[in-house]
Nucleic acid binder design. Structure first.
Length: 481
RNA sequence: GGCCUCAUCGUCUAGCGGCUAGGACACCAGGUUCUCAUCCUGGCAACCGGGGUUCGAUUCCCCGUGAGGUCACCA
């Protein structure tokens, strides 16, 4: 049996976002699941739209997500080259054969003439068909004019691995362009030649191509080629709208997510389960589980909205499940700059304390800041606190002084701190919501922090007491009595 | 406009003739001696409409409606 081969074939016109990369995820999963090959091919036949650097960007993105390809422009393979601009001879050969077979002809019209035909059709609210204007005896093709496919209009029934049985009538078949006047092939022509030569068995692509499939089938027939299995995946929609997710919606580069500290495996999990599930109530799938369980026939038929909140949850879930040492390695570049001078043990302990609240690595700096920097007392944390704002400065100062006295006796082990904090609660007669809030704010100057005893133990005795002093003097100087 | 596709909580979804329509995210409430988070418990919340078929339709069929795609010398 022939090996299963899938491909991802983007045009190098910019970065890859989650919508664009989903077909790559599905194609990769299918290839891995069947011990087949996953091929990267760059469709760079539109030189006007090409964006410098995007080839590298695409390859970097696939690698960053762990969607490594078995053949591609930078690594070669048995069907190289994998860049369409380097395969022009192949297209010309096939085009020549079509001309000889009477299935391709030179387009005698100028672009503006064709445009006039089109506008006429649109004006009459009729679909535009070039073949209604097919010339009787077109001139010989000299390579300076577009080469068109001479179609054979008829109805088609075909099977889509996701959508099921599909059919259309002859009215959708038209004479599309095979080779443009600049000598480059259109996507419509090139992808069919390449998929065939590269022995692609399963073609996964977005639903924007579905209307063209009958035309492709017509061309496959003219070329006497067997079409691959086709699988049409629905679009990923923007968060608000109903339209395909696009860069205009603010769809982020997948590399931006990587840079922000989203785990590749979480991104893959999120993307794969956007429009696919295994029929159980499982939400989190490892890469291996996805490879094992993925199936085209369980891919959803309708588009799904991209919801970043869900991605945040998935990513947080992966982070929480990471071993501390593994997490530590991964967050190396995300510490606040002041953390540089601290020892690994201290940072690991801090990381252990903040791990469960981390949704993505880029948050680490903000969340862990106060473990490394002495922040200036922020009056707003007190004046806007729903409990503390009711207390007078005299009362606050008194509480802090009692706290200081009590903590001076502590060895700052978590257990001892917990005990002394509890004693303090009784001694002062305040609820934790008051006393602990005050101590927490005084020692962190942060809106949120891990548990109080843990935080104090981590900060250590001298630093904690120092910060209590700082808060005390801030109260005194701002007091005026 | 023609052609094609799609349609379950706000969002991601389970369901493949009989269920109090299930789960997850988000949100709300409570608990975990403080905050944020985690975790636990509970809550809110959906079958687009109308006809059929059937003893029985979320499920099958038809017609609407809505949404999307496509009708490029872009992919």
């Amino acid at each position: 049996m022939k090996p299963l081969r899938t491909r991802f074939a983007p045009s190098p016109t910019g970065y890859l976002h989650v919508g664009g990369i989903r077909t790559a995820v599905f194609a990769w999963l299918l290839a891995r699941q069947n011990q087949g090959q996953f091929i990267l091919r760059l469709e760079d036949t539109d030189k006007k739209r090409e964006v410098a650097g995007s080839e590298q960007h695409v390859m970097k993105s696939l690698r960053a997500l762990g969607l490594m390809y078995d053949e591609g422009p930078d690594i070669g393979g048995p069907f190289a080259p994998y860049r369409q601009s380097e395969r022009l001879n192949s297209y010309k050969q096939k085009a020549q054969k079509l001309i000889e077979a009477g299935r391709a002809y030179s387009d005698p019209y100028t672009a503006s003439e064709v445009q006039a035909f089109r506008e006429q059709a649109v004006g009459q609210k009729r679909p535009f068909l070039y073949r209604n204007h097919r010339p009787d005896k077109p001139p010989a093709w000299d390579g300076t004019k577009p080469l068109r496919f001479k179609s054979d209009p008829k109805g088609y029934k075909w099977h889509d691995a996701i959508l099921g049985d599909l059919s259309t009538g002859p009215e959708v078949i038209d004479d599309f362009i095979l080779l443009k006047s600049d000598g480059y092939p259109t996507y419509n022509f090139a992808h069919i030649i390449d998929d065939s030569e590269m022995q692609i068995t399963h073609l996964i692509r977005g639903q924007e191509f579905i209307a063209s499939v009958p035309n492709y089938l017509n061309l496959y027939e003219a070329l006497k080629l067997e079409p691959p299995v086709m699988a049409t995946v629905p679009h990923i929609l923007g968060p608000g709208g109903r339209k395909k997710l696009s860069k205009r919606d603010g769809a982020k580069d997948v590399l931006d997510y990587i840079r922000d500290g989203f785990l590749p495996e979480a991104l893959i999990n999120f993307i794969a389960t956007l429009g696919w599930n295994d029929g159980t109530e499982q939400e989190i799938f490892s890469r291996e589980e996805l490879v094992e369980k993925f199936s085209l026939d369980r891919v959803h038929l309708s588009g799904a909205h991209f919801d970043e909140r869900r991605l945040l949850w998935v990513n947080g879930s992966y982070i929480r499940n990471l071993q501390l040492n593994d997490l530590y390695e991964r967050v190396r570049d995300y510490w606040p700059s002041e953390a540089q001078s601290y020892e690994e043990d201290y940072k690991k302990q801090v990381l252990g304390l903040v791990q469960e609240r981390l949704k993505y690595f880029a948050e680490l700096s903000e969340i862990s800041n106060f473990f490394f920097v002495d922040l200036p007392p922020d009056p707003a944390l007190i004046t806007e606190h729903k409990q503390l704002k009711k207390l007078s400065k005299v009362e606050l100062i008194d509480l802090l002084k009692q706290t200081k006295a009590a903590l001076q006796e502590s060895d700052f082990a978590v257990g001892d701190l917990t005990m002394r904090l509890n004693q303090l609660l009784e001694q002062t007669g305040h609820k934790p919501a008051v006393l602990f809030s005050l101590i927490r704010i005084a020692t962190t100057q942060a809106a949120a922090s891990p548990g109080l005893a843990d935080t104090l133990a981590e900060l250590g005795k001298s630093r904690s007491l120092q910060r209590l002093d700082k808060q005390l003097s801030a109260f005194s100087t701002g007091l005026g009595h």
